[in-house]
Structures are given as C-alpha cells and as structure tokens.
Simulated assay, not measured.
Amino acid sequence: MALVPLKRRRRAPSPPAGPPGPGRFPAVVLCLVEKRMGARGRAFLTQLARAKGFRVDRTYRAASMLKALPGRLGALEELGPLPGIGEHSRRVIQDVLEDGVCAEVERVKLSERYRTMKLFTKIFGVGVRTASRWYQEGLRTFLDLQERSTKLTRQQQAGLQHYDDLNTPVERSEAPAGRCRSRGKPRGHDVDLLLTHPEEGREVGLLSRVVSWLDSQGLILYQHSQENSYGLREGPEPLGGRDVMDRFERCFSIFRLEAQGGPGAARGWKAVRVDLVVAPHFERELRRFASRERKMVLNSHALYDTRQNLFLPAASEEEIFQHLGLEYVPPAQRNA
C-alpha cells in the first residue's frame, strides 16, 4: 500500500475553565497512561485535571523509563531532562535514594487495593480494568474467583492455570534458539518470535502453518491468533498512535518448554509466554523521531520523506539511521 503524508491534526480544544492550581486535592494523584488515549487526549485531560486542582503524574511511564536505564541510578541529577518523569516522580526517586524507601510508596504497597490489583493483573489476560472490577465486586484472592464462579475467558483460564510459571522471569538462555535480541537484559517476562519470508507475499498463511506444526509437537499450551489489520486504514499508521506491530498477524501463546529450574523443574517443563509475530522488527521511538524531527514516515514497510514526497531506499537498520541523520546505536544499547 502506498504511503501518503500525514494529515495535519486539529488542535485539542481548550479545557473548561476552573480554579487554577493543584492545591485543592493535594492527596489525590491522577496517573494518565498515554498508550490508549493518545498524546492529544492525555494533554487535554492533564490540563483539565490540573485546572480543577488535582495533581497529575505519569508514573507508569516514569517506571518504564527507569527500568530502561543502562545502569544503577546514583543521584537524581543523573536523570537530566529524561522524558516522562515529573516532579512527583522525582520526589519519590529522591526519597528512595536518600532513605532507601519512600513512605508514600510503602503506604500504597500495603493497601488492600494495591495488593489485590497486583495479584490479579499478573494473571495472563487480566488488565487493570478487569482487576478493578473484580476488586469492586469484593474479590480478593484466587479462591474468591473460584468460589464466586467468576466467568473467565479462555486466555484468563490459561493464565490462572500457569500463574507461577508465567510470573517467573524468562532467562535469556531459555529463549528458543535463533537470533535473540534482549537489549542486554539477562531476563524478561516473555519471548517475541518474529516471522518473515524472503519473498514478499509468501508470508501470508505462514503463521497458521507454524502454529499448527508447533501444536503437533506438543509445544503449545494455549494460543490465540490475531489477523493482520495493517492496511485497513487509509494512509500510513499515525506515529505515536497504536503500534504498527500490533496490527500485524500474530499469535499470543503459551509454550511448554523444557525447564532448567524454577517452579517447573520437578515436572521437567515450564510454561512460557511467547508471541509469534509475522513482521520485521522496528523501533517505536525511532518512528516518533522520524515524524517529529525529520517530517518522515517510518514504519515496518518503508521510510517515506513527506517533504520530498519519495521513498528512501534502505537495506539495513544502519541506512535508516543515516537517512535520519543519527549515529547508529546497536540493539543492546537502546533504551527506547
């Protein structure tokens, strides 16, 4: 599908007028997650909440940024102007650096709601919305789910059945043989396998054949496939919107792999989360940079210069970086 320049977006409407300043509700902190609402929606809600007197933070993104740091943080000044870390997050970090703990965080961690939400959201297939609904219904434990005959999806049933295994970190040595990128991290929560074919168009139907073969080998405990939805919209995928990778054909699965320790050592195997994706790899932050700084459209198919109205040839990641005027950064050194 041919790419066209991005359409200029309309500015977000101004929030309703209200009392300025965050002082009316100092004990209430609103955390806004941009992934689903988008940058415009988050900006509007942030302005509105602050105008009404609430404190707004982006703690979830701050946590992700801190986890991506290449080394241990020794001082607050080392963060510099790191995006996604606001004043509240910096106060929390400063408390931890000075005292080893943050009293505010410890209070939250001891609360019943936090402990319940953490327990439920660690179930594969259970998000914050479902966990919150269960909490509002009075559910607190796995036994409560069973005694109340809570209706679970097939994905959630598999997640509950293999709960201990799926919440045990996956060591890099346990990843299936092949080209593995971990950005230098020794472990992770799942494994992504990217599938492709050297001939364009031959990747159609590849995923179902691979899944069928894996299942015949007794390697799949659970699987749910998602059809390719890329190209159903007009124009290129918005940069900073939903990840292009989420639109490719993929299979969310749980593999039965040989155990090298942990909760599955006694039975000889363990359950591991594996996503099979029929798509080449790409970098989300690189796409954002291309759009905002270079006025280019970068996705898993091509690099398009909207000012020159042409596709830029690139046979490797190094050439993509060259087109964008960036020094090449090896995968293991990337924190995007």
Rank of each mutant, 00 (worst) to 15 (best):
L3S: 02
K7R: 13
R8C: 00
G23W: 15
R24A: 08
L32Y: 07
L45S: 04
A51F: 06
A63D: 06
K67E: 15
R72M: 13
L73W: 12
G74A: 03
E77C: 06
P81F: 08
P81I: 05
P83Y: 12
R91D: 10
I93M: 08
E98R: 07
D99N: 10
V101S: 10
A103M: 10
R115L: 07
T116R: 09
T121M: 06
T141R: 05
L152I: 07
G159R: 02
D164R: 15
D164Q: 14
L166N: 02
P176Q: 11
A177F: 12
S182R: 08
G188T: 13
H189K: 15
V191N: 05
V191S: 03
H197E: 01
L207A: 03
S208G: 06
S208L: 13
Y222H: 13
Q223H: 15
N228D: 10
L232W: 15
L239C: 06
R247W: 11
Q260S: 13
G261F: 09
A271T: 11
V277Y: 01
H281C: 00
F289I: 13
R294N: 02
V297C: 00
V297P: 01
N299G: 01
S300K: 07
S300E: 09
N309P: 00
P313I: 13
F321T: 13
Q322G: 03
G325W: 04
L326G: 01
E327L: 14
P330D: 05
P331V: 08
